[in-house]
Amino acid sequence: METLSTATELEWLGWTFYAGSAGLVLLGCYALFAARHALRLLLGLFLLESGVNLFLVAVGFRPDAAAPILVGEQAGSMVDPLPQALILTAIVIGVGVLALGLALAVRVAKEEGTLDLAELGRRLAATHTPATAEETLPQSGRTETP
């Protein structure tokens, strides 16, 4: 925009963008590490993806440049269109993965009655291997197998 000219303003804007995207990425990572419920994990993934997308848009930013859409006979610089196209693709990919994840969660909830992924992992580890299951269970503090 035309109001953005000084270097300090640009720097501030840059830090805002970077801090925003890094914050979203970190928040998403935290959700993935701390939460165990499948829906929360999927939400965390979505946050993480938003952070990545914000970063990509920030990469294409140019001071004093317009949106990459030609209106009439316009001269002057435009911001980088490529990252914008990339994030459009990335957003659609994210939606597809999220939808499939929700569908899987519906099936898991119907079949297993829980959406705690750590618990499901424990059940998965115990499916066929009575021998190894006993080895791994004590460290997680559980003794009974559901």
């Binding site: 990425v25 993806e49 993965v97 994840g101 099936r107 898991v108 079949e111 998965l124």
Partner: peptide
């Protein structure tokens, strides 16, 4: 197979995390 969907869900979460990193 029982738990196939659970395995798929865990796989999806890990794989999507990886994909986000790759995109970054």
């Amino acid at each position: 197979e029982r738990l196939a969907a659970a395995a798929g869900l865990r796989y999806l979460v890990l794989s999507a995390l990886g994909s986000a990193f790759a995109l970054l």
